[in-house]
Each structure stands twice: as C-alpha cells, then as structure tokens.
Design a protein around this nucleic acid. Sequence first.
DNA 1: CCATCTTTGTTCGGAATCGAAGTTTCATGT
DNA 2: ACATGAAACTTCGATTCCGAACAAAGATGG
Lengths: 411, 411
Amino acid sequence: MPCWLLRGVLFLSLPYRSRCASNGSGTLAGSAGDLVRLVAKGHGRSRAELARMSGMAPSSVSLRVEELIDAGLLREDGEGASRGGRRPRQLRLHENAGVVVAVDVGTHHVRMAVLDLGGRVLLERELPGDIAEGPERVSERLVEHLRMTLRQASVEQLPLLGVGIGMPGPVDPGAAKVVAPSRMPGWNEYPIGRRMSELLGVRVVVENDANLMAVGEHRYGWPDRDNLMAVKAGTGIGCGIIASGKLHRGRGAAGDISHVPVHVPEPVTCSCGHSDCLEAHASGAALQRTLRAQGIEVSSSRQLVELVNDGVPEVTTLVRNAGRLAGQVLTPLVNFFNPDVLVLGGGLSAAEPFVAAVRGAIYERCLPLATRDLEIATAVTGRDACMLGAGALVLDEVLAGDWVDDALSAR
Amino acid sequence: MPCWLLRGVLFLSLPYRSRCASNGSGTLAGSAGDLVRLVAKGHGRSRAELARMSGMAPSSVSLRVEELIDAGLLREDGEGASRGGRRPRQLRLHENAGVVVAVDVGTHHVRMAVLDLGGRVLLERELPGDIAEGPERVSERLVEHLRMTLRQASVEQLPLLGVGIGMPGPVDPGAAKVVAPSRMPGWNEYPIGRRMSELLGVRVVVENDANLMAVGEHRYGWPDRDNLMAVKAGTGIGCGIIASGKLHRGRGAAGDISHVPVHVPEPVTCSCGHSDCLEAHASGAALQRTLRAQGIEVSSSRQLVELVNDGVPEVTTLVRNAGRLAGQVLTPLVNFFNPDVLVLGGGLSAAEPFVAAVRGAIYERCLPLATRDLEIATAVTGRDACMLGAGALVLDEVLAGDWVDDALSAR
DNA sequence: CCATCTTTGTTCGGAATCGAAGTTTCATGT
DNA sequence: ACATGAAACTTCGATTCCGAACAAAGATGG
C-alpha cells in the first residue's frame, strides 16, 4: 500500500521524484531498481559485480542489497567461482518475488509460458486456438488458459506482475491494439491490452510477433550483439529490429517488409492492391495458395516444411524461390542497417532450402563490408522466440516501473 | 496542483537515488557534466529547468551552477520570460569556455566553421581544395586553414577543445580512418584523425559525410524527431541514420545505399563490379558521365543543378530519373526503418525535379502506415548540414568527456 | 490594487552516499 | 606451508545531496 495514503491525503507527491529514473540504456545505474534490473538480466551476480556495473560504491550496494533481501526481492544463492580472491556470494531474484506470463498468439495456435523475473521458463504450454474466432472469444479463452497454466506451474500464490502478448499483425503498443491487420477479421482497433488487463488486473503489454522474435532472440540468443534483424517467415512475413540493444519501433510500423516489391514473372494481387509484394509471393500463405492451384493441399507452414523435408520437388522449388525473394528484399536492408546478426525464424525457417536461399541471395549481393562478420542464423530459441520475446518485453516493463520501490516501501 | 497542498503531506521515505527521475526525453543527468550538456543542447536554460531535466534537487543544481559559473564555464544571461511566476535567470555557456572547429571535406572543396560550445557558428568559410591531392597534402592545408580561421574568428586565445571532420567516403570512426573509398586515391586506411590530432594537439573525430548530415539535420533541423534518415545525393549517394536520437553506425558501414540494385535498361559497370548499382546510375558522378557522352560537359553537381534550373531538358530528364531511382531504393528502407523524417541533402537535392521524383516514388509505393505523417524535406541547413553535423558530433564527444570535471578541478 | 497562486531560486538541517581503510577468504608461487 | 596478492565484502567517518521551508518576483482575476 502506498505510504502517501496513510493520512488520507490523496496526493501523489511528484516534485522531483517522478522524473528521475534510471538509465534505460545500459550499464550505468544508481538505484534499487537498477540493481534489481542488473540481477534480473544476469549482468550483476554478486555485490561486487553490481558495484562495478552500477557505478555505486560497494558499500552502498551492500546496504541496498541487504534491504532488497529483507524485502524478499533478492536472495543469496551459494557462492560462485573465485576470480583470484574471496568467492562472490551470488545473488538472484527470489523465486517468490513474482512471475510474468508470456503469450504468443498465432493464427492457429497459442503458446504460453510462465516466467520468473529472471526470464527463466517455469512452465510452457501450446494450446489450440483460432484467431478467427474474434477478439472477445480469444481473450476469454486466453484468460482461462492463463489461469490454468498458473495453477499447473504452482505459482498461484505468487504475485502475477505482468502479461506480454504477441499478435500476428501490426500493433500499436501504446494503445495495446492491433491495427489494420490483414488476416485477423474483427481485430482492428480492438483494445486487447485493456481487455486483458481488466480481466486479469495486471499490466499487459502487446506487441507484434516479429518484433517480439527480435527481442527474444536478442535476449536469449545474442545478448551482446546490439544490432539485430529478425525475420519471421511464417504465414506472413515480418521483421523486427533491435538497434543499440533496444526494439526499434520507428513511428510504430518499423520492420514492415511484407509489401516490398519483388521481381516475379506472374503478378499476384496482394491485400494492399499491388501485385508484386513480397508477402504475396513468398509468405507461407502465398505458397499454400500456389500449391493448392497445383492440386497439393497444404493447410499450415509446418505441413509445408514436412513436404520439403520429404523431398517433394514442387514444394522444395517453391520454398527455395521464396527464400530467394526474401533474400533479395533483405539485401538492401542489411546494407542499410548493417546488423551484427540476421535471425531467420518462423515456420519457413525450418526448411533448409529456404534458409540456404536467403543466405545465398545476401552473400551474393551485399557489400563485403556488410557481410563480413555478419551472422545469419536460424532462431536460437526456435518456435519459442516470439513467446520469449513477449516475456522479455513485459519483464523490462515491470522492472522499469516502480514495482521495486513499492515492494521496498510496502515492507 | 496548488503548491500549498504540499504542506503537511507525508512523503515517501525512499532512498534518494531511487527517486531520481526520468525527464521523459531520454536525457539523463546527475553531475556537473550533465548540467553543462543540458545547457549546451539548449534543454536547460535556467536553474529550475535544469533541476526538472536532470532530476537533481533544485538546491543541488544551484550549488553546482554556482561552481560552474565560478569556473568560467557558464554565465548568466539576463532574464527569460515569466511562465506565471518569477522570471528565470537564464544560463548559457560562457563564450570564453572554448570553441570547436567543424570541417566538411568534399571532393573539390573544404568547408570549415568555428563553433562555440552551444553549437552556434562564430565564423564559416569555404575554401578550395582537391581531395585527390592525397591525405598528407590535404591534412597540412587543413591545419593551415584551420589556424587562419581561428585567427579570423578572434578566438586564438580560447581553448580549442576538438575538431570534427567529415569525409566523403566510408569511415571507421574508432580508428578515425577512411576505409575502402571509391573516389579518394591514396586515402585508404590513412589515419587522418591521428595525423590531425598530432598536428593540432586536440581531440579529432572523423565521420562519414552522410552520417554527419543526419547528425546535423537532427540537431539543427529536427531536434525532437528521434528517427531520421538523411540522404546525401551529391557526387556519390549515401545515407545517414538517426535511431532513437543517436547516430546508428551498425557494425560501421550502416547507411550504405550506393550499391543497391535498381532497374535500368542499360547496365553501367560500378566500382563494386555489379552493373545495376544505384550509385552507377543516379549519383552526380554518373549523371556527369552520361552527359559527357551526350556532349554536355559538366564538372560538378552544382553546375548540373544550374543546367536544370536553366531548363535544359536533357539534364532535367536525367536528374528526374535519378530521383526516381533513388526513391525506388528508399521505399523499402522507409517502410523498414519507418522514420519521422526523411531529409534530402547534397548537391542534387537543390534540383527541384530530383526532390519531386523522390517524393513521388515514395508516396507511390510506401505503405500508408509509413508515409502518414512522414516528413520528406530538403536539408534545413542546406550546404552546411555535414559541417554542422561534424560540429555537433565533436561537441557531443567533448562534452561527454571529462573536460567539465577537469575545468572544475583546475580551479 | 490587493489577495491568491505560480514559478524561480536559496538556506539549512538531516539523511543518503561515498571512499578509504579494514576484514574475510581464496589463488598463487616458492 | 607460508607469504603475497587479489577479490569480495563491511565498517565508519566525511562529504554530498536532498527536501522542506523560505524568500523573491511576477501573473491573474476580481
């Protein structure tokens, strides 16, 4: 309970406090919240390391850590390896401090995980679900599943501090809405974030799935590469961007590569009205359409990949061609953004010919300056990438808020 | 919210560091250097504003400002307009605190300016110069010109705190070298930064000219737009990127768009070995080559633009076509990066048909989500953009260093 | 013109933080 | 085994910084 209510004075005292805040951008820091953040991200595993990373005096760190332990936020966890002197007493977030839930809403499935505040997965589940059922129905089922998952993870008694949700379409993260989606009837402008927040009573963040893949891969796969592009090639094609270690949203729509024109012999009309969009020729949906015209019935990207792995030549050719087109689109973007890593994820990335074609196109045409030391890799976290990204994002949000201060003063 | 409510309110008693504040605009603060930075960037013009922006207590700001005034770094500058209460005593950097020099090295000219620490231009000069004379000769002449310019600006007795240099080719900013340039014989790997630093005895930063254009336009033209692309279309074609308010360098080569393939009927071999590079078809150099083949002798982008303004049809057609090609290349990049502003600079941007063609191509093919509210503008600072960017960059460097602390303790 | 409210900037006591010295614990080399 | 050095904390006085109250100066509105 906030202290300022003690005298019945309903007044938030913000003269100087409300603007201060911590350093979102990295290593220098200075408050209790920063220490918790450092521990949560694994950048500070002992008092000494926290002092080094935060810039605070070792004495101050010790005092502050003691408070955080007393408040039940941190706990000591044995001793680490000596680096030539006394062994560090390792610190970690207390497992009872709370949990968050990460949700990846796909077109035909929902993946969900319970994470502790350090980002470790406590329980993970895949559930059926059809986004075409509409937002009301889907949110209700999400809440049901979420409650059940929390029970199964035996963390009902712990505080649920936030929920992160990934959606397969453009998202306005401020309003926590899906905007102008192409394959999600009924979802336009639906305030999924507010609705879920009402139903659950916790903070909910919503983000596009490709952006979340970038966040997830950055955190769990390439933590020290600060410039990363993540391409999600599944039913649709999207791209998430990590610039200087942070998700780049631009004016809200950054990373859209679906409607970049490609060279193809026969035009296919896209939802945007043009006929040579990448998405209309190289997305999983486009490939399924083409195969159906050839009499090969395929209903999901996963099935598509199975056919490739079974060596069905028509399908393999099609998938390789899709990879080539994606690579052609990515080439200028790689030159322009010059990332450390290009991550390939989504259903199609499980097909080796797709990945090989993307690689080939990029190495063929990108500048040596851009491809030297460029890593092109499939998603380290595989099918979990988006979900883990949702977790990482909501964790950032929770740990950046005043949860730590509240917990300290509530004691 | 009336002030008198403050009385009798029970305040939260949190440790003071945790109340530090975020000023919302990403500028963090907490020390003397931060105050000077805020004043230098114009974000803090009075003690009260500094307190708000930095998160420090007003009392601390007052004490610190007093020290800075005593040290000769700041000075009071009259009173500002009242905002409903006492008038603020405005603060500015003391003009005697020091200067920096900004240099824009072009292929056939050198532009140079003396700036005070607030980024104001004290004196500006354009000098002849040919980059083909080679690095040794050019650096010597730069130093001569620089000394003369300092004399002319009557700031010889003031400390010269740094020099920023823009080069028309790829730059490794860490090593302060030009790397693998296409039109600068003898410059490859030449340590221009170290050489100038030896000759002048001050810190020297070196950066690519398109990057500097982005920095300059961001600082002087669009200070609150944090995502910006600046295209420099002159003899070559380059692009600088501001992401979240900071220059994005990627792994060092970000912003390269010279060698993105474009669709053209007749191939022209580029220095990179391909035949359909943007630079080989739409750069000033390429246009001059084409015109020469038609018997029209043109020796600079400026002359090219004059012919356009004179209404010479062959030239206008050519320039418009170059704009269309540039626009085609920029379209996916704008979708991808989703900037707030796209700045067009460099020689060709002075030709209206070029700008119109770029605009047309982008609006024709970019997503509405990306172009809604997108500003496409010619460089606010015109031909000075790169030079001013060099100044802004070296100022950032100087003010981020320990110059302030040194000056304080030297007293 | 006066009361009221704002904003700016300063004063001063008390609290939070620093930093140097000290303690504990371990690696390393002889 | 023992000295030496190094790293991880802790202690405690000195210093810095904060925050409330105050003072100065001006807008606003009847």
